[in-house]
Amino acid sequence: MTVVLGIESSCDETGVALVEIGPGGAPRLLGEALHSQVAMHADYGGVVPELASRDHIRRVIPLARQALEQAQRTLADVDFIAYTRGPGLAGALLVGAGVACALAAARDLPVLGVHHLEGHLLSPFLSDDAPRFPFVALLVSGGHTQLMRVDGVGRYALLGETIDDAAGEAFDKSAKLLGLGYPGGPALARLAEAGRADAYALPRPLLHSGNLDFSFAGLKTAVLTQVRKLPAGPDAATRADLAASTQAAIVDVLVKKSLAALKATGLNRLVVAGGVSANRLLRQQMDAACAARRARVHYPEPRLCTDNGAMIAAAAALRWQAGLARPERRYAFDVKPRWPLEPISQGGPAC
Rank of each mutant, 00 (worst) to 15 (best):
V4Q: 09
V4W: 00
L5V: 09
G6H: 04
I7S: 12
I7A: 11
I7V: 14
C11V: 06
D12A: 08
D12H: 04
D12Q: 08
L18M: 12
I21R: 03
L30K: 07
E32G: 00
H35N: 09
S36C: 04
H41D: 11
G46Q: 10
L51I: 14
R58C: 07
P62N: 06
R65N: 14
E69M: 13
Q72S: 15
R73P: 05
R73W: 03
A76I: 01
V78K: 02
D79N: 15
D79I: 02
R85H: 03
G91M: 06
V99K: 01
A100F: 09
C101R: 14
R107K: 13
P110A: 03
V114M: 14
E118W: 08
L122D: 05
F125V: 06
F125N: 02
L126M: 11
F135T: 00
V136K: 01
A137Q: 02
A137T: 09
L147F: 12
R149N: 11
D151L: 08
G152D: 12
R155I: 05
L159R: 04
E161Q: 15
I163M: 14
D164H: 07
D165V: 03
F171K: 05
D172L: 04
D172I: 02
S174H: 06
S174D: 10
L177G: 10
L177C: 09
G179T: 11
A187P: 03
G195C: 05
R196H: 14
L212H: 12
S215R: 08
G218M: 07
Q226F: 01
Q226T: 01
P231Q: 11
A232V: 13
D235C: 11
A236N: 12
A240S: 13
A240K: 05
A240H: 07
A243C: 11
S245Y: 00
S245C: 08
Q247R: 11
V251H: 00
V253D: 00
V255Y: 01
L259E: 09
A260F: 01
K263T: 14
R269S: 15
S277I: 13
A278I: 04
L282T: 08
Q285K: 15
Q285G: 00
A289F: 04
A289W: 03
A292E: 15
A292F: 04
A295N: 04
A295L: 06
P300K: 10
L304Q: 05
L304I: 10
T306H: 07
G309L: 10
A310M: 08
A315Q: 07
L318I: 02
W320G: 06
Y331L: 10
D334H: 13
K336E: 15
R338Y: 13
W339H: 11
Q346P: 00
A350S: 15
